[in-house]
């Protein structure tokens, strides 16, 4: 305990404080808001898993939705075909994690020794394959219509799901933070900055890259599991390109390589979804919200590649530096 407290930095305390405040939020908010915040937690986990690839290692995946979908469908199918008990859920999570790990391992082994483009292309193709498979295997997935599921008895209350999602988010956040601050995480950043140099220093780059895609895939599948538990409905949308675009946007808007950024990005995108779907009655252009997202996304990539958190951090550290310079000059 003392050790944990000693390791607590100021920022960690702030994050824990916010989490503690969020823990008491369900007392004052209504059902729909509670559901929306739960969704934000779920997508924040999903976006953080993406940040691990894009932000820390410089790997681009255009099929990250497939891991989310694997988690979602494993849970839904187990809940649907077997009894909706906690044991079935536990097995479902186990299956989701193993399957996601296997898929990301295979895709990673195939393409990560090649240029960045290959991983992006292959994940796009694999996600397409999963989408087609989910639409064709109607006996298992009931196609695009989807189906509703019964969650285990004790997980049906919306407050319970809210708290479970929050705790998962906090645990995964600190877990990934620990991971990215570890020597392993430093090697990932080194790969992002200069892959050849990292290799020359004696690191087996492929080994690190495959491992990080597996971790990312597993975390994304856990987000999928939580998504289904909170929504209790699944359809092929969980494999869709829209979802990959969403997660890309969350990560890029929030700030790549920051972990906090994707959480903020997830909140912004989910709120924007909510706001824009409300505007659909005002003008039909809002039904085509993806266009707005696409434009925002392109502008972000050109003008603010660091995202919100990244840009703020850069400004902040820049000011510090210039102050230091000024001091040095004065003395």
């Amino acid at each position: 305990m003392v050790l944990i407290l000693r390791n607590m930095t100021k920022s960690n305390l702030i994050y824990l404080g916010i989490a503690a405040l969020l823990l008491f939020l369900p007392m004052i908010i209504t059902g729909s808001t509670k559901f929306m915040i739960t969704q934000i937690f779920v997508f924040a986990i999903f976006a953080m898993s993406y940040d691990l690839l894009l932000g820390y290692t410089g790997i681009i995946s255009f099929g990250h939705a497939m891991f989310f979908g694997i988690g979602a469908y494993s849970t839904a199918i187990f809940m649907d075909h077997f009894d909706s008990s906690l044991i079935a859920l536990f097995i479902a999570i186990l299956v989701a994690v193993l399957f996601a790990a296997l898929v990301s391992f295979i895709v990673g082994m195939l393409t990560l020794r090649l240029k960045t483009h290959f991983y992006a292309m292959l994940t796009l193709a694999f996600a397409g394959l999963f989408l087609v498979a989910a639409e064709k295997m109607r006996w298992l997935t009931r196609g695009n219509d989807g189906f509703t599921i019964k969650a285990p008895e004790i997980l049906r209350d919306s407050t319970t799901i809210y708290i479970i999602s929050l705790i998962s988010l906090v645990l995964i956040f600190f877990g990934l933070r620990r991971l990215t601050n570890s020597p392993f995480g430093r090697v990932l950043v080194a790969i992002r900055e200069n892959e050849h140099r990292t290799e020359s220093l004696g690191y087996n780059v492929l080994h690190y890259k495959v491992l990080v895609t597996v971790i990312s895939g597993v975390v994304a599948s856990l987000a999928g599991v939580l998504y289904i538990l909170s929504l209790r409905f699944v359809n092929t949308g969980v494999f869709g390109t829209d979802l990959t675009i969403d997660v890309l946007l969350m990560t890029i808007i929030g700030g790549v390589g920051t972990l906090v950024g994707p959480i903020i990005g997830a909140a912004l995108i989910e709120l924007a979804h909510d706001w824009i779907s409300g505007l659909a009655n005002v003008h039909w252009i809002f039904e085509r919200w993806l266009i707005l997202y696409g434009i925002v996304y392109i502008l972000m990539v050109i003008f603010f590649p660091l995202g919100i958190v990244g840009t703020i951090r850069e400004k902040f550290s820049g000011r510090k530096k210039s102050k230091n310079n000024a001091k040095q000059k004065a003395s």
């Binding site: 894009l54 960045t116 483009h117 675009i245 890309l248 266009i291 696409g294 392109i298 990539v301 050109i302």
Partner: peptide, 22 residues
């Protein structure tokens, strides 16, 4: 910048696709 290039062309793909619908 390869990463930005790959990201941005996918974004443009989505814009082109949705513009068709508009």
């Amino acid at each position: 910048n390869h990463i930005q290039q790959i990201l941005i062309t996918l974004g443009f793909m989505i814009v082109l696709q949705e513009l068709i619908k508009v």
